[in-house]
């Protein structure tokens, strides 16, 4: 059974994902900002908590807005998982390390998101990225590769920003809160 402290942290990080994600779309920023909470949970409490945060975030998005978000739940889980293991490897100790962690997360996201997008949605998202996929397939690329390229292209900046923000937040935590989370030691 999970401790209530962990439950409340996960709930808060899910709420941050939802809140910041909505804020990013109202501010019309070109990034999603909807995985900062997931990375934060992973940094504070480790990969498994990060994974749970990602999973429930997307299930909840599914309940609020429809099943598409739920279909991408494995992607959100991978973000939390990879961020947690990257932190254990000490990648979040430096600024450069956090950028690398963002790149690594993007690669894993691509591995998981590409098949979902390709086989469940025919590589179509209903966003501007469709023009890119259409162009790539038209000039002879395979659908799977075209989708993978767009996934990298749309996620790279967002995931690096998420890693940097989460790292900075953990660094700025007051000592009183920091001391409650063993994982925070992995973020110098």
């Amino acid at each position: 059974m999970m401790k209530n402290r962990t439950l409340v942290l996960i709930a808060l990080c899910i709420a941050l994902n939802i809140g910041l994600g909505q804020a990013a779309s109202t501010l019309k920023l070109p990034i999603f900002l909807d995985s900062i909470g997931t990375v934060l949970a992973a940094l504070l409490m480790g990969p498994w908590v990060g994974m749970a945060t990602g999973l429930v975030t997307n299930l909840l998005w599914g309940v609020i807005s429809g099943p598409v978000a739920a279909a991408f739940a494995p992607v959100a889980m991978v973000i939390g998982l990879v961020a947690g293991f990257a932190a254990r490897k000490g990648l979040f100790r430096t600024l450069g390390g956090a950028v690398i962690a963002g790149v690594v997360i993007t690669l894993f996201v691509t591995l998981v998101a590409t098949p979902i997008r390709t086989y469940l949605f025919g590589g179509v998202t209903g966003s501007g990225a469709d023009f890119f996929v259409a162009y790539l397939t038209a000039v002879g690329q395979k659908l799977l590769q075209s989708v993978a390229l767009t996934v990298i292209w749309t996620n790279l900046v967002d995931k690096i920003v998420a890693c940097l923000v989460a790292q900075a937040v953990v660094r700025q935590l007051p000592g009183r809160i920091r001391s409650l989370f063993p994982g925070a030691e992995n973020v110098a």
Partner: peptide, 19 residues
Amino acid sequence: VFPLVLGMLNELPARSAAL
């Protein structure tokens, strides 16, 4: 973003104690 996230995390112990 920072005041928001830091503020919410700062209240985390109070929330979990309440639960």
